[in-house]
Simulated scan of single mutants.
Amino acid sequence: MAQDSEQEGRLTRVSAFVFLHTEHAVYAALGLLLAGTAILALIDATGLLFGAIRHLGGSGELLKIVDSLLFLLMLVEILHTVRVSMRSGRLTCEPFLIVGLIASIRRVLVITLQSSEVMHAPMTAEREALFRASMIELGVLSGLILTMVISIFLLHRARDDNEVAGKE
């Protein structure tokens, strides 16, 4: 009977070892893919910036640059979350709230630019419906952004050490 218990304990240790290393391997592969994607996004954003400088681009080009940079910021934040998860073995929610906040801000910028373009053109029934839908979406996004900011604030305040999530 003691031998069965010892064998079950050894099996548990071996399976925990295999699962832990498998998890780390998946995290490492995910980190490499995210890093590669982030580098490509940085190269793309740099190309967009130089193209806008050459042609003295308008608001459409500037929005593409800002959108690309915010996407890059989201990738870096997710990469940071993967790194922290590998080191600590814990998954924290604050980095995901930050990514959601950045994504919401990206969408607000896109909607704002699209709405300003709609306002400069003659108003038709279709444009008016698009404008109303955009305003509703902006309202929902504003509430979502406020909720995420409050959540980040409360998470930071509730933490004992008053450190930012993931700081080693």
Rank of each mutant, 00 (worst) to 15 (best):
V118C: 00
H24E: 12
G31I: 03
S85C: 10
S134P: 04
L141R: 03
T112P: 00
E126K: 10
A45F: 03
T112G: 12
I102N: 03
L33E: 04
L155F: 14
E94T: 14
L34C: 01
L101T: 06
I53V: 15
I136A: 13
L49Y: 14
A38V: 01
T147Q: 02
L109T: 09
M123W: 14
T124P: 07
S68V: 04
F131A: 11
D67S: 15
I65T: 07
L69G: 10
R157K: 15
A28W: 05
A41W: 01
A25Y: 04
L72G: 09
L113G: 00
F50D: 06
H120D: 15
G166E: 08
G31W: 02
V26N: 02
L32S: 09
L72I: 06
S142H: 06
R159L: 08
E94F: 00
F131N: 06
L144R: 01
L56K: 15
G139V: 08
L32M: 13
M148V: 08
L62R: 09
L42E: 07
L144G: 14
A41H: 06
I53Q: 07
F50Y: 13
R132H: 13
L97T: 04
G139E: 08
C93D: 13
G100F: 03
V149Q: 07
A28S: 09
K64N: 12
S142W: 11
F71D: 12
A38Q: 01
F50T: 13
L130C: 02
A45H: 03
A45W: 03
H120G: 11
L75Y: 04
M135I: 10
Y27D: 07
R107N: 09
S134K: 06
L30M: 11
T81Q: 10
S59R: 14
E94H: 05
L56P: 00
E77W: 00
F153Y: 15
S115P: 02
T124R: 04
V26A: 11
A121K: 15
R87S: 13
L69H: 07
A125M: 12
A29F: 08
G36K: 04
T46D: 05
D67P: 11
L146E: 04
I105P: 01
G57Q: 07
I98Q: 03
K64I: 03
P122G: 09
R107D: 07
R157D: 15
K64E: 13
F153M: 13
L91H: 03
L154A: 13
L62F: 14
S85L: 11
I145T: 14
A52P: 08
G143D: 07
P122F: 10
D44P: 01
E128F: 08
L138K: 05
L144C: 12
A35H: 01
V66Q: 03
Q114C: 07
D160I: 07
G143W: 04
A38S: 10
A45P: 02
G47D: 05
R83K: 12
R90T: 10
L101E: 05
I98W: 01
L155K: 09
L48I: 08
I105L: 14
I136C: 08
E128K: 10
Y27T: 03
D160S: 15
R106S: 15
A103V: 05
G143P: 05
A41P: 01
S151R: 04
I102H: 02
